[in-house]
Design a protein around this nucleic acid. Structure first.
Length: 567
RNA sequence: CGGGGCGUAGCGCAGUCCGGUUAGCGCGUCGGCUUUGGGAGCCGAAGGUCGCCGGUUCGAAUCCGGCCGCCCCGACCA
């Protein structure tokens, strides 16, 4: 391929809107261009990278026994209503109407479509296990696109769905995908941390996320420095302190805390540290109210609470509801003297708090000297708080380290949520009808491009791993007007391409500096220079982008030498 | 959606507070000459609804109101 005929619009300066490295460099290198917030075009170079990533995924999926299909982007509303997700899916699917006012959404994910597909044609246990996948554009009306390709409204995703008759089959299908993912990221050269996670709006269990450690990521994960336990912040568990035994002391004492509606304010008024306070949050689930207790210096984790209460309509109580239930205004709620009907749930840590400050359930007052289990009873102690950097690991004597990460893939077990709703049932070996048990496995293909760019770059530009580089070799012909040099360069290009090494010949009518800068910016793994030195010595210069290792070679030796350097 | 920032030539920016000639600068683009191994030099040229709509004013890039777009921080996800 000749650079002089290639669409290669590199930018000397990054557009102002790009902040993170991958976004900046992908724009500058002429890989992508933005059309609107979270909507991008892939230019020839970017598309080559995207296709490389796809191809790695495709071969490993096929190897794992999954079969590729292509499902529609346009999904009829009725299908989504059968699973209740027309309104429940977050972020909300993009919706369109046809000329007859029939409603569709642009597929944000394909559980409904694939399950419906399988429901129509799979009727016997003999037809499973079955794993179908596709590589396709997904649409999500993201609340806030950000970070170039990191979070967008329209993106390429590989999504796979497995169907089995029993849990054992699901386990096998799940493991096959898990292993395939490990191989995929290994081949892509992308180091991933596999973490425990929540399933989000898809529903499911045994959720694992494949994370690329990076400051531009949107997730926080915790990794134990000793045992390797790792989990998304949404479900990371820290070891609570040993619970403390208490004796009945004096009854809690009412103190005046005028206008102290926040933990900070109460601490200031009473001169006490926040870990001496118990924060009482009032939640509503259906017609039921719950008082949720966490230590004053902690944050409640909503995922954990929702997971414990298992109430689909869980929400914080309104100020009016709080007043009605506790008898006091917002900011002064406490666990003492609540109506019997209010459940009291506490984070494990509360069990070791003594002599605590709690809200008095009346305006401008708190109670001092409250002891859990003595002055009030707790229905259940469970892990409800947000883990923080430096917390003790729940599984060993190690310490949890907080890190930022980019989620690039996700595997989890769906169970029968979709098969039951969409009648994907088969006869088992006894002739009994059973809903298929599903697993779901996603990879953010275009996001991987961003993640690789985040990880592999330096001050001069991108540094693509060979597996995904748009071209393996950039051959810089510094004097395109010299016919002898041009012939050498073209011969080397032909040799390399014949050897299966994708090569772009930079024969543009540009100065040497421009070609060097562009080659560095674009990040070709190997650069070969044909220039004046070649005319003098008959040799060309090879340089590896990754570490700058150089070598000289005669034209007929270039293929072998390039192979060595790219290995 | 809440908070913050920004919108002037393809890209990066100045000018806006304090209204007043023909709206500037760097890069890029086009033409010419020179140059030619790390984003060249000189000469010449093209390129602008100053995001949009309305208002104030003799006069608006600049002041006021509304709207749109983009980026960043927060709650969601691949």
């Amino acid at each position: 391929m000749r650079a002089s005929q290639y669409y290669l619009p590199t930018l000397r300066q990054a557009p102002a809107e790009a902040e993170i490295a991958s976004h900046r460099l992908l724009l500058r290198g002429g890989f992508i261009r933005s059309l609107a917030a979270g909507v991008f075009s892939f230019l020839p170079l970017g598309l080559r990278v995207l296709r490389k990533v796809e191809e790695v995924i495709r071969t490993e999926m096929n190897r794992a026994g999954a079969m590729e299909v292509l499902m529609p982007v346009l999904h009829p509303r009725e299908l989504w209503e059968r699973t209740g997700r027309w309104t429940a899916f977050q972020p909300c699917p993009l919706r369109v109407k046809d000329r007859n006012e029939r409603e569709f959404c642009l597929g944000p994910t394909h559980e409904e479509v694939v399950t419906d597909l399988v429901a129509r044609d799979v009727t016997s246990y003999k037809q499973v296990p079955l794993t179908l996948y596709q590589i396709q554009t997904k649409f999500r009306d993201e609340i806030r696109p950000r970070g170039g390709l990191i979070r967008v409204k329209e993106f390429t995703m590989k999504d796979a769905y497995s169907f089995d008759v029993d849990e054992a089959g699901l386990d096998r299908s799940y493991l096959a995908m898990y292993d395939a993912y490990v191989r995929i990221f290994d081949r892509l050269g992308l180091p991933v941390q596999i973490v425990e996670a929540e399933a989000g709006s898809m529903g499911g269990h045994d959720t694992r996320e494949f994370m690329v450690l990076n400051e531009s990521g949107e997730d926080t994960i915790f990794i134990c420095d000793t045992c390797g336990y790792s989990a998304n912040a949404e479900c990371a568990v820290a070891r609570p302190p040993a619970s403390t035994s208490r004796e009945r002391t004096e009854k809690p004492r009412l103190v005046s805390t005028p206008n102290a509606k926040t933990i900070d304010a109460v601490c200031a008024v009473l001169g006490l540290p926040a870990d001496q306070l118990i924060k009482t949050l009032i939640y509503r689930a259906g017609e039921e109210f719950a008082a949720v207790l966490v230590r004053g210096d902690r944050e409640l984790n909503d995922f954990k609470l929702a997971g414990f209460l298992r109430a689909p309509d869980l929400r914080m109580a309104t100020p009016e509801e709080i007043e009605q239930v506790t008898g006091g205004p917002v900011g002064f709620s406490g666990p003492i003297g609540l109506p019997e009907s209010v459940r009291i749930i506490a984070d494990c840590e509360i069990a070791s708090v003594t002599d605590a400050v709690v809200g008095a359930n009346q305006a401008d007052a708190h109670l001092v000297g409250a002891d859990p289990g003595v002055d009030f009873q707790v229905e259940t102690y469970t892990d409800l708080r947000e883990a923080v950097h430096g917390d003790p690991c729940a599984r060993c004597a190690g310490t949890l380290q907080a890190k930022r990460a980019i989620e690039v893939a996700h595997v989890f077990k769906l169970g029968t949520k979709y098969s039951a709703a969409l009648d994907a049932v088969v006869d088992d070996e006894h002739g009994e009808q059973r809903p298929l048990i599903m697993g779901c496995y996603g990879i953010g293909v275009s996001r991987i491009v961003a993640a690789i760019a985040e990880i592999y770059h330096d001050d001069n530009g991108l540094v693509w791993p060979a597996a995904v580089a748009p071209f393996q070799v950039a051959l810089l012909l510094l004097d395109p007007d010299r016919e002898d040099l041009r012939q050498i360069a073209e011969q080397i290009t032909a040799d390399l391409e014949a050897a299966g090494c994708e090569t772009i010949l930079d024969d543009r009518d540009e100065r040497a500096g421009v070609k060097f800068k562009d080659a560095d910016l674009i990040g070709h793994p190997l650069r070969i220079v044909v220039g004046r030195k070649t005319a003098e010595t008959g040799e060309v210069e090879l340089q590896r982008r990754r570490d700058g290792v150089q070598a000289m070679a005669k034209p007929e030796e270039v293929v072998a030498k390039a192979g060595e350097l790219l290995a």
